[in-house]
């Protein structure tokens, strides 16, 4: 943030290609000076702050399939142009992927969610991204269109640092896809911000669990942590512990300790690292307990 943030957006050209291939080629040809535009809620802020200087914003919102939201037997596909409010409003999502709707609801404000997209939230790769945890624990896979066509990549491993991901020039994430969820699964997102709602997270904690006979404990849990490491993080040791040990208050407590030990938060303007570590412990316990209550309801 500079003292002289631009009063308005700096000069750039808005580009709306006719096809995905055209868009990928344009982005590849203008690597470093062009960026795909979904909702723009992060892009515009960064450009106004003088942090990004792109010459071209390439609108991918209405390209082939990016405006689609489909929930059927094959799973859930959310196009890059689908706003979070659309995700929340979709009854099938609330019914079958409530965790995702819950995570979307926690993002900023209603009027910002009219623009904000899940795919944008993922590509932005903020350690604090509110929907990233849900996408991770639900095993989301990204549909990516590059200059050599479509490919699919798992979300895990996609984040390489704050604001950094594995996309290459010309790549456009057109959608995120989720397979149908395991039967009787349940999840919880707990966000601790400064305000009761709407703030960025000091810590964001996502827990997801489901019965699984292949696990010694009979259950598998996934735990994702936001704002406590350079990238959104899965708490693998805690997850493994819960696969081995019966789900109860003691094991949730132990898993919470493992989760806390796994994160590497920093001191920043929102919180100290010390508080974040303590809150990962507290919120993991709480999220696991709440998830367990839903699982056994």
């Amino acid at each position: 943030m500079t003292i002289n943030a631009h009063p308005e957006l700096p000069d750039f050209d808005y580009v709306r290609p006719a096809t995905l291939m055209e868009a990928s080629q344009f982005l590849a040809q203008h690597a470093g000076e062009a960026r795909p535009l979904c909702g723009g809620t992060d892009i515009f802020v960064r450009m106004r702050d003088g942090l990004w200087h792109d010459r071209y914003l390439v609108d991918v919102k209405k390209l082939d399939g990016t405006a689609n939201l489909a929930c059927d037997a094959a799973g859930l596909t959310i196009g890059a142009g689908v706003s979070m409010n659309r995700v929340i409003a979709e009854a099938a999502v609330r019914q079958n992927y409530p965790l995702l709707a819950e995570a979307c609801c926690s993002v900023a404000s209603h009027q910002l969610r009219t623009r904000a997209t899940i795919v944008g939230n993922l590509c932005n790769a903020s350690p604090a991204g509110d929907t990233i945890g849900a996408c991770l624990v639900l095993g989301g896979r990204l549909r990516v269109h590059g200059t050599d066509g479509f490919r699919e990549i798992p979300l895990e491993g996609f984040f390489t640092g704050p604001g950094k991901n594995t996309l290459r020039p010309g790549d456009i994430v057109t959608a995120i896809h989720f397979a149908p969820l395991p039967a009787h699964s349940a999840g919880t997102y707990i966000k601790l911000g400064r305000n009761t709602w709407s703030d960025l997270s000091i810590v964001g904690l996502t827990a997801f669990g489901y019965p699984d006979e292949t696990a010694a404990s009979g259950y598998r849990f996934k735990i994702a942590m936001a704002s406590v490491a350079p990238t959104p993080l899965l708490a693998h040791k805690a997850q493994d512990f819960l696969a081995e040990n019966p789900p109860n208050l003691q094991s949730f407590d132990q898993a919470a300790r493992l989760a806390s030990a796994a994160c590497s938060p920093i001191d920043d303007v929102r919180s100290s690292a010390r508080y974040r570590k303590l809150m990962v412990y507290q919120l993991t316990k709480k999220a696991l307990q709440q998830t367990w209550e839903k699982l056994t309801r």
Binding site: S83, H110, Q111, T114, R115
Partner: peptide, 8 residues
């Protein structure tokens, strides 16, 4: 839909 007009 309500939206921030500074973000469009």
């Amino acid at each position: 839909e309500a939206v921030n007009s500074c973000m469009v």
